[in-house]
């Protein structure tokens, strides 16, 4: 493989997570954190970054150990590796940012069972070199963080009239409370997926017209 091809493959692995294989919008993975903690933009960002840390670290470790881990117990091994990093995140958040840790509550610990992370270990990190695995993990987790913000920012603006805790509108703004409550999460993701469907279907239709 020439150097140019190599580089284009790397950027491909990195970029696919952002848009083409976006974990939340396209594969619909990792939904329970995506809906549960996205009631404010800060919580969404914190959850995205925590997931990024866990995904990147466990991808590195799984990729390094990929020839040592026996095939039969690989899933268990991945889960133990992931759980270790989640414990690290859990304890560090509790130490450095106690307020965010309190708001995210048990959902930090629930990163362990986020199907996105286990999915990347099984599908990518266990078969590829460390460098590529890191790029894949970074792309996927940036895509995840992006999706979290896409859900969290509108929910906070509509539901409490603020962004990153700064009030946006005047006194007269009447918050749309249901948006920061659980149903708001379902609606927001539902409408975002609707938009995504509309965009892809329109693109396919246009491509068909151009082909004909």
């Amino acid at each position: 493989m020439t150097e140019l091809e190599n580089r284009s493959q790397s950027s491909e692995e990195f970029l696919k997570g952002l848009w083409k294989e976006n974990p939340v919008f396209i594969s619909v993975l990792g939904m329970c954190p995506a809906l549960a903690v996205t009631n404010t933009a800060i919580n969404s960002l914190a959850m995205g970054l925590a997931t990024t840390f866990v995904l990147v670290c466990s991808s590195i470790l799984v990729s390094l150990l990929r020839s040592i881990i026996p095939k039969q117990v690989r899933i268990t091994a991945y889960i133990i590796i992931i759980a270790t990093f989640v414990t690290v995140v859990d304890f560090s958040l509790a130490a450095f940012t106690p307020t965010i840790h309190k708001e995210l509550g048990a959902f930090i610990a629930l990163i362990v069972v986020n199907c996105l992370i286990l999915g990347r270990q099984e599908a990518f990190a266990s078969k590829n070199k460390v460098g590529l695995s890191v790029l894949d993990a970074l792309g996927m987790s940036l895509g995840f963080t992006f999706a979290m913000l896409c859900i969290g920012i509108p929910r906070e603006i509509l539901g409490s009239g603020s962004l990153f805790n700064m009030p946006l509108f005047g006194e007269s703004f009447e918050p749309w409370i249901v948006m920061i409550l659980p149903p708001g999460g379902f609606f927001m993701l539902g409408f975002l997926l609707l938009g995504f469907n509309w965009y892809t279907q329109r693109k396919e239709k246009n491509a068909k017209i151009l082909d004909a």
Partner: peptide, 22 residues
């Protein structure tokens, strides 16, 4: 309509059920 079929529709239905449960 084709555009809302699948997960988008399920999520919106789930949102309405969730609102009822509130």
């Amino acid at each position: 309509p084709n555009v809302i079929k699948g997960t988008a529709l399920n999520l919106i239905i789930a949102g309405i059920i969730s609102m009822a449960f509130m």
